[in-house]
């Protein structure tokens, strides 16, 4: 699956300081470009029961997925959760899958998603969730990372 380049610009940083560049992986056919304000959503907010409040600005949703071990009710498949987040107006959705190794598999057939869905983990995820935890307002730009194709070594 194509990789994503995620550029994060803090709203309250010096004009000269450079954006933070992180990486992730697009799921299924959702590779594409997106830009918006970073907003966290609790995993349960993407169940059909609850309706997240409408955002005024253009936003990108980030969801920290919990490990299946701690019994957060799954309520609906991850692909439907992603679709619901996009239907609620998100320009894209970022899933922190550091603690949910099954996420990538659940989203492999995401051809029908209208906008980008990106998986992040490890240091990339911690950087993003660290900003959220400190309520540090940020603008996120997502695009497809251009990669050189992997040619096997010829002798």
């Amino acid at each position: 699956a194509p990789r994503a380049v995620i550029k994060v610009t803090l709203l309250r940083q010096e004009p000269t300081s450079k954006p933070i560049t992180l990486e992730g992986v697009f799921v299924g056919g959702s590779a594409g470009y997106a830009e918006g304000k970073l907003m966290q959503s609790h995993p349960l907010s993407l169940c059909n029961t609850s309706e997240d409040e409408r955002q005024d600005s253009i936003f990108i949703t980030i969801v920290k997925l919990e490990s299946p071990g701690n019994k957060v009710p799954q309520c609906q498949p991850l692909l439907d959760k992603a679709r619901l987040a996009l239907q609620r107006g998100a320009e894209a959705i970022i899933f922190d899958v550091s603690d949910d190794a099954t996420a990538a598999h659940q989203l492999r057939e995401a051809f029908s998603l209208p906008k980008p869905v990106v998986l992040v983990e490890g240091a990339n995820a911690e950087e993003l969730m660290g900003l959220v935890n400190k309520n540090e307002e940020a603008i996120v730009h997502i695009d497809i990372m251009m990669e050189s194709p992997k040619w096997p070594p010829y002798d």
Binding site: H42, L44, D52
Partner: peptide
């Protein structure tokens, strides 16, 4: 699910 700025807890 309480909204606190960009956080939702």
């Amino acid at each position: 699910l309480e909204r606190d700025g960009m956080r939702q807890i």
